[in-house]
Each structure stands twice: as structure tokens, then as C-alpha cells.
Design a protein around this nucleic acid. Structure first.
Lengths: 197, 197
DNA sequence: CAGAAATCGAACATTCTGTTCGCTTTTATG
DNA sequence: CATAAAAGCGAACAGAATGTTCGATTTCTG
């Protein structure tokens, strides 16, 4: 890829994430983006068909490698899902989000775009489907698998939204615990301690 | 309220829900609405500030009375949440949706509007908060109440979306079971039977 | 019936979108 | 290094949608 192309792409992404931090996706115009990115209008449209595609490509830029590497781990090294570390998958994602590179957090914020959430949920579902045998363990009997996978994926996303939306002071590990317990991927963490005493 | 106002309002709502059945909220224009409703442009704006407000008022028209009456039941007649009928609340809502008056189903469909889901979720959270003592029973220890309430409300909505989005052939009672089991408001329904044998 | 209120419809400024085109700068290649 | 191909510029443009305005007309209310 041409250096000019890379630079333009980068400039547009930066301008876009910068704007996303301040306002709704829907409220952002192409005009604002190109002004902030300092590129020509025609150039923008040469790179991205529409504003929606821009978001889609940003999503992929931000998350594809994460999900892909997880998918690999899931398939190759089962440990990422293994008993003791059954939470490492989710915790890893939460840390990734926590670091907030490129304002990832803003993408989850409740005022923002359905499009991104749809994409993210899809990735989660794919990932979980690749290791059905594990989700199957926590699944209540007689509930369909795809219902359960959808439930876990949705719950994870909504958990993140709850986190970013007024509970941002909590640590990823804490949020991870809440989530895992809620979807039966972990026993109640303090109950254990109580049992021990 | 003037008969003319009522009629105009009604016509706009009908045109709007009709269009929602066919296309995304975002893709619907005011022009289409007024054409289908057969009212003047100025008239539309005399009734609704924007398209978003139209959706908001439609939401209220469709769901306010349901949530309000449930809220009353929750406060006055505790039975709606009582052990045996702990599911009647959700089942009631599912039936309401199932009847699909005014194309309620379309509002949940994944291609549609974040705005409506936000509204609906808010109603659910209010409703559940009014009977915290019940959600508290199913709540895992050491998970914050508001996390748990958010979890249940979200899970319910995502359950409906799963239902309307490719599993519409299932009966409300079945979906209700899946949901309740998933959030620990009911024991696994068939496990019981197994126990009996 | 008379005044008030709602609607009409047609026009209007404004904003945003997505495209086009001729010209300039940058890059890759032989 | 020379040069053609690729990328970007910027200005202009048509088209669509938004939200407003206003005088004329219809419908309601008292």
C-alpha cells in the first residue's frame, strides 16, 4: 500500500475516533471528518464508500487481530479456555478495552452506534461458537446452544456498556468476575472464601 | 384534544409503523412518512419536533401503559412476582410482543434503531428496580445490585432479539423458560422432570 | 355564526451527500 | 534519473433531506 494511502487512511481514522469521543456517530458528518483529517472530499470517498463503511473498517482495524489471535488460541492452545483460566479470554478483552487505545471505549458508550455493537457481537458469537464445548458446560440443560451463546455474547457486551457507562472506576478483573459469575462461568467468588472459613 | 389532531397523529403513527416494517428507522425520511400519512409537511413538524421524537412518542404510546400497569401490579399485588409466577411478568411482556400490534416486533429487529431499545431497557430497569427484593434473590452474592438488574434487563431484550431474529416460530412460554433459566429466575425446567423420574 | 385552531401546499434556505474533472504532487519502476 | 501511474487537491455540482415560513382554507368550539 502506498505511503500516501496509509497516511490518508490514518489521518481519517484519527479524525474519526477523535470526533467519536465527542459526539454521536450519527451526528458526525463527512465534512467534519475531512476537515479535521485535512484531506480532500474526493479523497475520503476514494477510501471509504460511506461513513458506515468507515466505521466498519475501523472496527476491523481495532478488533480483528484481537479476535483472530484469540480464535487461534482457542483452536490451537486450549488453555485460554481451560478450567482455571476460563476467564482469561474475557479478561484479555477487558484489558484491551481498558487500555482505551484509539478511544475504543467511546465505541461502546450508549450514545454511540449500533453498527459497532453488531460487529462486536458477531465476533463474540463466532469466537464462542469455535469453542462450543466450553460454553456447553455452563449452559443449562434444555436451553438451545445458540440461545446460550447469544446470551453470553450479549451479556458480555452489556456488561462492558454498564462498565463504561458510569462504573469506569472498577478494575477489569472485578468486572470480569461480575460477568463470569452472572453467566455461570465461575462460582460466586466470595462464596468460595466463605466455604473455606 | 382536537379530532383533527388525533386523526393526524394516528395517520402519522400508522404510516410510520408501516414503514418500520419494511425498512430501517434511519432509512425512513419525513417525506415518506407524510406522503404515506397524507398530511402536510408543516403539519408533521407541528406534531413532532423530529423523527426521533416521533419514535419516542410511539414507544410511549405502545409501552407506557404496559409498564405502568406492571409497575402497579408489582407494587400493589405482589403476586406478579411471586414464587410460582415469577415468570408471569416476563411472560406477559412476551405475549404482548407476540401479538405484534402495530408491528412492535419490528422495533426489536436487529436492523432497527438503538433509540427504541434504549427506551425499552430503561423501562425494564425501572420496573426491576421497583422490586429489587426479587431480583435480589437470584442475584449471585457479591455482584452489585445495579449490575445484576442491568444484566437481567439486557438479557431479556437480547433474548427477544434472538427470538424475533430467526427463531420466531417458538412459543412465548418456551422463550420465557430459556430466559428465566439463563438468569437464574427458574431452575432448569427439565432437570425437574429428570429428578422426578 | 364568529373567532380560534389546525391543516394545507408551496416555496425556501440550509445542510449533507456523493460525484466529477482538470490540475498538482508523490511514488514506483525501468 | 526520468517518467508514467497512482494519489490527492479543490472547487464545483446535482440531488436529497431537513426544518421553516406564510397566506389561504378547512374544521372545530362556544
Amino acid at each position: 500500500m502506498d505511503r500516501r494511502q496509509r497516511k490518508t487512511r490514518e489521518a481519517i481514522f484519527n479524525a474519526f475516533t477523535g470526533l467519536l469521543a465527542k459526539k454521536d456517530f450519527a451526528a458526525i458528518t463527512v465534512g467534519e471528518i475531512i476537515e479535521k483529517a485535512d484531506v480532500g472530499r474526493a479523497t475520503f470517498y476514494a477510501h471509504f464508500e460511506t461513513k458506515d463503511y468507515l466505521l466498519k473498517e475501523l472496527n476491523e482495524e481495532l478488533f480483528c487481530h484481537v479476535f483472530d489471535s484469540m480464535m487461534d488460541s482457542a483452536v490451537n492452545h486450549r488453555h485460554i479456555f481451560d478450567c482455571k483460566e476460563s476467564d482469561s479470554l474475557f479478561l484479555h478483552l477487558l484489558y484491551h478495552i481498558y487500555r482505551n487505545d484509539n478511544h475504543i471505549l467511546d465505541l461502546f458508550s450508549s450514545v454511540n452506534n449500533e453498527l459497532f455493537l453488531r460487529y462486536f457481537k458477531n465476533c463474540m458469537i463466532n469466537l464462542l461458537s469455535a469453542r462450543k464445548d466450553v460454553t456447553e458446560k455452563s449452559k443449562p440443560k434444555n436451553v438451545p446452544s445458540d440461545f446460550w451463546i447469544n446470551h453470553i455474547a450479549s451479556a458480555f457486551i452489556e456488561c462492558i456498556r454498564w462498565w463504561t457507562d458510569g462504573n469506569a472506576h472498577l478494575a477489569p478483573s472485578e468486572v470480569s468476575d461480575y460477568f463470569l459469575v452472572s453467566v455461570n462461568l465461575k462460582e460466586d467468588f466470595d462464596e468460595k472464601n466463605v466455604d473455606c472459613c
